[in-house]
Amino acid sequence: MAKRLPTGITVLDREIEGGLPAGSIVLLSAEPASQSELFLYELTAARPSLYLTTVRSDQAVSDAIDRANTRTGDPTVRDLGGDAPLDRANRMIGTLPEEATLIIDVVDTLERYDRSRYRRFLNELQTVMVNTGGIAILHGLDGVDVPANRDVTAHVADVVFDLQTTITNAEIENRLVVPKFRGGKALAEPIKLRLAESVNIDTSRDIA
């Protein structure tokens, strides 16, 4: 079995046999109005992390991590906004140390590039992650304007986390589905989560 790196999110590591295979690319797909950023913040606690932001400013991300009422690390945060974000991302991933966590929040901006350029980026990222033995988390928004290259991201990704958020009877339900897991096994059932101040299992009883 490939070396596993814990995500730092206890409830998730328990379900995926201790963590993610070293060298993995992970797609975290979530709706824009979900609190999926809590996953990203907690992922920074496990090991040195590089957090690349494409929408919010680096200061906004750093402030949000500092305010988070959950266990976080002290990631290096860099803004990919402005001109040529894909080129900047390529330069930044070349600086990753061994067994680091890379977070791209959100990957949508990069997915809007020409397919051949984006494919080259993913292939380079895959090579870097395998060589450094780290983990890359690509945060993709599952909203009304999903980039055409999302299918490429999902195909290249070793692991897919699909966070599904539904609102029923004035209640918000979050379920994490793991349909793809190279080097491990996909989960047979979704994990019902409570996203508030941290990522936890939702122990409330389902009502049929």
Results as ranks from 00 to 15, higher is better:
residue 166 T to L: 07
residue 60 A to H: 14
residue 151 D to Y: 13
residue 120 R to E: 13
residue 5 L to W: 00
residue 154 A to Q: 11
residue 153 T to I: 11
residue 67 R to P: 08
residue 15 E to L: 12
residue 160 V to F: 02
residue 195 L to H: 01
residue 183 G to D: 03
residue 132 T to S: 08
residue 111 E to F: 09
residue 20 L to H: 00
residue 13 D to G: 05
residue 204 S to M: 09
residue 86 L to W: 08
residue 97 P to N: 06
residue 34 S to E: 03
residue 179 P to G: 01
residue 100 A to T: 00
residue 202 D to N: 08
residue 57 S to A: 13
residue 79 D to H: 11
residue 148 A to P: 06
residue 143 G to K: 02
residue 68 A to D: 05
residue 153 T to H: 02
residue 40 L to K: 02
residue 192 K to E: 08
residue 11 V to L: 09
residue 61 V to Y: 05
residue 31 E to P: 02
residue 115 R to Y: 12
residue 207 I to K: 14
residue 205 R to D: 12
residue 30 A to R: 00
residue 17 E to C: 10
residue 66 D to V: 11
residue 158 D to M: 07
residue 167 I to K: 10
residue 76 T to R: 13
residue 115 R to W: 15
residue 104 I to K: 04
residue 53 T to F: 04
residue 173 E to Y: 08
residue 33 A to G: 11
residue 80 L to A: 05
residue 197 E to M: 10
residue 111 E to H: 10
residue 88 R to A: 10
residue 36 S to Q: 02
residue 204 S to P: 05
residue 15 E to A: 15
residue 126 Q to N: 14
residue 30 A to V: 02
residue 107 V to A: 08
residue 204 S to Y: 07
residue 104 I to G: 01
residue 2 A to M: 14
residue 80 L to Y: 04
residue 27 L to G: 03
residue 108 D to C: 09
residue 45 A to D: 07
residue 113 Y to H: 12
residue 47 R to A: 02
residue 15 E to Y: 09
residue 20 L to P: 00
residue 5 L to N: 00
residue 45 A to Y: 04
residue 68 A to P: 05
residue 3 K to C: 10
residue 3 K to H: 11
residue 38 L to T: 05
residue 2 A to L: 12
residue 148 A to I: 14
residue 81 G to D: 09
residue 65 I to R: 01
residue 142 D to F: 05
residue 15 E to W: 08
residue 159 V to H: 00
residue 143 G to Y: 01
residue 203 T to H: 15
residue 105 D to N: 09
residue 115 R to F: 15
residue 167 I to D: 06
residue 141 L to Q: 04
residue 18 G to V: 03
residue 29 S to D: 10
residue 110 L to D: 02
residue 43 L to W: 06
residue 191 I to L: 13
residue 80 L to M: 08
residue 139 H to A: 09
residue 117 R to E: 14
residue 176 L to H: 00
residue 110 L to I: 11
residue 17 E to M: 13
residue 196 A to K: 12
residue 111 E to N: 11
residue 99 E to R: 07
residue 124 E to K: 15
residue 110 L to R: 06
residue 32 P to H: 00
residue 57 S to D: 10
residue 62 S to T: 15
residue 92 M to K: 11
residue 193 L to P: 00
residue 190 P to S: 02
residue 122 L to T: 05
residue 65 I to D: 01
residue 82 G to P: 04
residue 37 E to Y: 11
residue 143 G to S: 09
residue 104 I to F: 07
residue 142 D to W: 05
residue 169 N to F: 11
residue 115 R to L: 15
residue 43 L to A: 06
residue 201 I to E: 07
residue 190 P to C: 03
residue 26 V to R: 00
